[in-house]
Simulated assay, not measured.
Amino acid sequence: MQGKVNANEIKELKDFIGKHFIYTYDNGWEYEWYCKNDHTCCYRIHGGMVKGRWVTDQEINLFKIADGIFKITWTEPTGTDVALDFMPAQGKINGVIFFPKWVHEHPEITVCYQNKHLDRMYEAREKYETYPKYLVPEFATITYIGDAGADNDDVINETPYDGMTDDIRNGKFYDENYHHVSRRQA
Score class of each variant (00 low, 15 high):
K51Y: 08
D85A: 10
N94Q: 07
A89D: 12
K36P: 02
T165K: 01
Y128A: 07
H179W: 02
W74Y: 11
L118G: 12
C112D: 12
M164I: 05
Y25N: 12
Q90R: 10
K11F: 04
G3S: 11
R169C: 02
G171V: 10
Q185A: 14
C41V: 12
N94S: 06
T40Q: 14
I69Y: 01
T141V: 09
P132A: 05
M121D: 15
H104V: 03
K36G: 02
V82A: 13
L135A: 08
N61V: 06
Q90P: 08
E9Y: 12
D85V: 08
K116C: 04
I97S: 09
D147K: 04
C112K: 15
I97L: 09
N152R: 01
F86Y: 12
E126R: 15
K92L: 09
K71G: 11
H20T: 01
E76H: 15
G47D: 05
M1N: 15
V5M: 09
N6M: 06
H106L: 02
A148Q: 01
C42E: 11
D162N: 10
F21I: 07
F86E: 03
T80M: 15
K133P: 09
F21T: 08
R125C: 10
K101H: 06
I22K: 03
G163R: 02
G149H: 00
H179A: 03
K71W: 00
T78N: 06
F63I: 05
I97E: 05
T78F: 13
K133Q: 07
D162F: 07
S182A: 11
D26P: 05
D153Q: 04
T75C: 07
D151C: 11
P107R: 07
S182C: 02
D154K: 05
V5L: 04
I17P: 12
A124F: 08
G146I: 01
D166Y: 10
M1V: 11
E59R: 14
E32T: 00
E158T: 15
N6G: 06
N157Y: 09
D119Q: 13
P137A: 10
K116W: 06
